[in-house]
């Protein structure tokens, strides 16, 4: 493998991770969707490059699926949903702390995944190891995004970017069989459709896609049950 081959693969994987970091501080939904589309496009490039390197023609199909579904179809549908829900002008507040802290946490996660993967996969080839480290970083960043966002649409995007990390890892290690790949792609699509439907239902009922509304809805029941549970806690259990 030439230095060039390695550098290109490394650059594409790194770009994928950069896109994840960019998503972390994006407050506008449109921008978020666009960056997601960019990440998916980078993913298809990275997978295609892996296909070239590994002489594995089935990876071209994976790349094609990534390009069609993730870079085009899903962002297009998300745009459509955002407009239908009339939230395209909303600026999202990120839960808890400010964006600066979240970026710091994101960088720490990247460092952690590098550290773990470079040690854990010490026996594998250099390229695979780097790919795995980036894939883990993308995965963790996607999860971090799901944890910090309140808007349902941005949670979906977090979930989808997490899945991008999985595909990157799978393409890099020649591990996952093609059938598994296909089925993952389709299950993601189905999950996307289901979540999209739910979004509309949530919107219909609560007039918002902010998930806090759902918490508030359950809140009444939660408060009563917790308080009743607390009071009976000290009692002798007579049920046994």
């Amino acid at each position: 493998m030439s230095v060039m081959d390695y550098s290109v693969a490394h650059m594409l994987a790194g770009a994928l991770m950069l896109a994840s970091l960019m998503m972390l501080y994006q407050k506008r939904l449109y921008a978020l969707i666009n960056i997601y589309a960019l990440q998916a496009f980078l993913l298809s490039l990275a997978v295609a490059w892996q296909a070239v390197l590994q002489h594995a023609p089935q990876l071209y199909i994976t790349a094609l699926i990534a390009l069609l579904f993730k870079a085009l179809l899903i962002p297009f549908a998300l745009h459509h949903i955002v407009i239908r829900l009339r939230i395209h002008r909303e600026i999202e507040t990120v839960a808890g702390t400010g964006t600066g802290t979240i970026m710091l946490v994101g960088m720490a996660l990247v460092a952690l995944s590098m550290d773990v993967m470079l040690k854990a996969a010490a026996n594998t080839a250099l390229l695979e190891r780097e790919d795995l480290a980036f894939a883990l970083a993308v995965l963790l960043l996607g999860l971090l995004m799901m944890v910090t966002r309140r808007n349902a649409v941005s949670q979906i995007i977090g979930f989808l970017s997490l899945e991008n990390g999985l595909i990157l890892a799978a393409a890099g290690t020649k591990g996952m069989p093609f059938m598994v790949e296909i089925s993952i792609a389709f299950s993601i699509l189905v999950a996307f459709i289901v979540i999209g439907l739910f979004l509309f239902r949530i919107r219909e009922r609560f007039d918002t896609v902010d998930l806090r509304a759902l918490d508030d809805f359950r809140g009444e029941r939660r408060l009563t049950e917790v308080s009743s549970g607390r009071s009976s806690c000290g009692n002798e259990g007579k049920t046994l």
Partner: peptide, 29 residues
Amino acid sequence: RISSRVFCVAERMDRFQFLSIRHYLGIVF
């Protein structure tokens, strides 16, 4: 004693039934 401890712990754990999605994701994370 054992059963009252079990019930006590179960009631403490009960709080985990009523977290928001974000909190569950946070726990996983």
